[in-house]
């Protein structure tokens, strides 16, 4: 035993290049880019400015905390870029840029840097940032504009360039002047909740309805997520568990009372459910690692989302559902530790 053995053992897979944090994160960024591009196509300059501003703020905040704590720069691991992109995708396109800066700062500072940086954060940083601005600016974060308005590439939405610290102007008149008929300034979820109107299946799949920057088209989000799942950069069980449980619960309610509760496709495609399930709940640092735990985590998020939507005060529940799932992750991991093979069942390890 004391003699050094010159034998190197490696487990499969025998790949030439292993996965690193940088590599995984880089591919997540790649997968997010089509969603961003589609958002810019839908909402024009305002969405582009918002995505750039929020991402830049996240990167600068990360650098600032690197400086304060005297550690090497962690910008090159791409994680702050992901946080910035994801955060921007969850904000409404008309969100004032200065509030985007606040959100980006809160995301990195509160959600990540204070816990010790990448891998130590308890909550998904992008959702921490969004939760912060949701609590701080409840009106701005629920002000929506229609997608595909004609002048989107030649002018900003009036609220985008609000002076820092100032209240964004009311855009009701602006929306009316620019608008396709019948736009009520509400997301499909809000319209269902307050007017009991269910949006068309096709509209929701392709993203014609009003929504946050990157939440409109479930289809494109799913395709990007599929790429990551095939490359094994995310755990496919999590989105499957979330979406599956949400659809099942929705189906149950719909069968019990079809007039009151919407059909399952509506629950699946509206709001940020798909984006959250694919890109946010799958954050490796904040989701369980045990196989059983992953299913519990996903089902918990899916069911909670539907419950918040149906019975809560808010129209959308995915954000708080994921944050709740994040908070329970250490506990889920602890109670779902697999039994060591050969160890007695009743005995304590």
């Amino acid at each position: 035993m004391t003699q050094p053995l010159r034998l190197e053992l490696r487990t499969a897979p025998h790949v030439a290049k292993g996965n690193s944090v940088e590599r995984i994160m880089f591919h997540v960024v790649l997968a997010l880019l089509p969603i961003c591009a589609f958002a810019v196509w839908q909402y024009g300059l305002s969405a582009l400015a918002l995505i750039i501003t929020v991402t830049a703020t996240c990167l600068l905040t990360e650098r600032l905390f690197n400086r304060l704590s005297g550690t090497a720069s962690t910008l090159s691991d791409w994680s702050a870029t992901i946080t910035g992109l994801l955060l921007a995708l969850t904000l409404p396109p008309s969100f004032p840029l200065w509030m985007g800066v606040v959100a980006g700062f809160a995301a990195i500072a509160l959600g990540k840097a204070l816990f010790g940086g990448i891998g130590y954060n308890v909550f998904n940083p992008a959702l921490v940032g969004r939760a912060f601005v949701q609590a701080a600016f409840p009106v701005a974060i629920t002000t929506w504009v229609p997608a595909y308005f004609p002048s989107r590439f030649s002018e900003f939405i009036p609220t985008t360039l609000t002076m820092p610290l100032m209240t964004p102007p009311d855009i009701g008149a602006w929306v009316k002047g620019h608008m396709v008929d019948g736009f009520t300034g509400a997301t499909p979820l809000a319209r269902w909740k307050f007017e009991n109107q269910v949006a068309e299946f096709g509209d929701m799949l392709s993203g014609v309805a009003a929504a946050s920057v990157g939440e409109t088209s479930a289809l494109i989000v799913l395709v990007c997520g599929l790429y990551l799942a095939v490359r094994r950069f995310l755990d496919w069980r999590i989105p499957v568990a979330i979406l599956g449980s949400a659809v099942l619960v929705a189906l149950l309610f719909h069968l019990l009372e079809p007039g009151r509760y919407p059909p399952p496709y509506f629950v699946l495609l509206s709001g940020g459910l798909v984006l959250g399930a694919v890109f946010m709940a799958t954050d490796m640092a904040t989701s369980p690692v045990t196989p059983l735990g992953v299913w519990i985590y996903g089902i918990l998020i899916g069911v909670t989302t539907v419950m918040i939507r149906y019975f809560g005060g808010l129209t959308e529940g995915i954000m708080y559902a994921i944050l709740l799932g994040n908070a329970l992750t250490p506990l889920i991991d602890q109670v779902t530790q697999p039994r060591v093979f050969g160890a007695g069942k009743g005995k304590k390890a």
Binding site: A135, F137, M163, L165, M166
Partner: peptide
């Protein structure tokens, strides 16, 4: 301090705001 158009940060007068500022 900022004129009539100031956008209040609602979270700051809520309990979480107290914790954030103290922190």
């Amino acid at each position: 301090l900022f004129g009539p158009d100031f956008q209040p940060w609602v979270v700051m007068v809520l309990p979480p705001g107290g914790f954030f500022v103290l922190g």
